[in-house]
Amino acid sequence: MSSRAHLGKRITFFVGVILAFAYVFPFFLVFVNSLKLKYDILKNPLSIPTTITWDNFQQALEKMNFYRSLTNSIIITVLSVSLLIFFSSMLAYYLARTKKKHTKYIFLILVTSMIVPFQALMIPFMARFAPFVSWNNRGALIFFYIGFGTALSTFLYHGFISNIPTEIDEAASIDGASDLVAFWKIIFPMMRPITATVAIINALWIWNDFLLPRLVLTDESQTLPLSTYLFYGQYSIEYGQAMAGLVLAVIPIVIFYLVLQKQFISGISQGAVK
C-alpha cells in the first residue's frame, strides 16, 4: 500500500471516530447526568458525577409508570407485528400467485397508498373511530397498525414470493394439500428472511410511534414514548429524574438492537431497497 493510501485511511479513521463520538455523546451526556444530583447538573452538566445517586432512577421508574408502559409497548408491538405478518404474508401470496386483473389493481392501490401521510387521515379517522377507541383503545390501536402496515409488509412479501418457483405450490397441490396448508406448511417457512425484515421494520415503527398512540390511548394504556414525553414535560425541572427517565426509555430498544444487530442491518437494507 502506498503511503498516500495509508494517509487516506488514517484520515478516514480519524473522521469516523470523531463522528462516532458526536453520535453517541448526547446519550452519554444524558446517562452521566442521570446519576447526578440536581445541584451538580446545574453547576456543570459535563462533569463526571462526584457522588453517584440511583435515586433519580427510582423516582423515574415510579413516576413514569415504567413497567406498566413497558408492558403496554411490548403487548402492542408484539401483537401488531405478529398479526401484520400473518395477514400480509397471506395477502401477498394471494396477490402474487393469482394472475388476474383485480389482483393487479389491488396491488397498485396498496403501493400507491404508501404515499398518503397519516396526517391526511387522522382528523376524519379520529371522528369516525371514536366509539371503537373508547370501547377498547389497545385493541383499536392494534387494528389500526394492521391497516397502516399492510401496504409495505405486503409489498415486501410480494417481492419475495415472486422469486419462489410456482412448481413448489403445484407439487403441494398434487399431493392433495389445500391452499392454506400448502402456504403455511411449505411457503411460509421458506420466507423466513423476509419475515425477519418485515418484523424488524414494523417493530421499530410501532415501538417508537407517537402521534397515533397519542390520539388513541388513555393514561392506563400509555406506551413508552408517550409516558416518557409526559414525564419529561412534568418533571423537566427535576433534571436528574428527567434524565433517568430518558435512559429508561432508551435502554430496551438498544439492548434489542445489540442482540439482533445483524438482522436489523440486513432487514433495513432489504426493506429500503425493495
Binding site: Y23, V24, F27, N208, V254, L258
Partner: peptide
Amino acid sequence: ILRTFFFVPNLIGGVVLGVIWQFI
C-alpha cells in the same frame, strides 16, 4: 463498530431524541 454507533439514534423515537436535545 462505527456503523453501530451511527445507527443508534435511529432506533429511538423522535420524541425521546427531541427531549434529549431540548436538554442539550
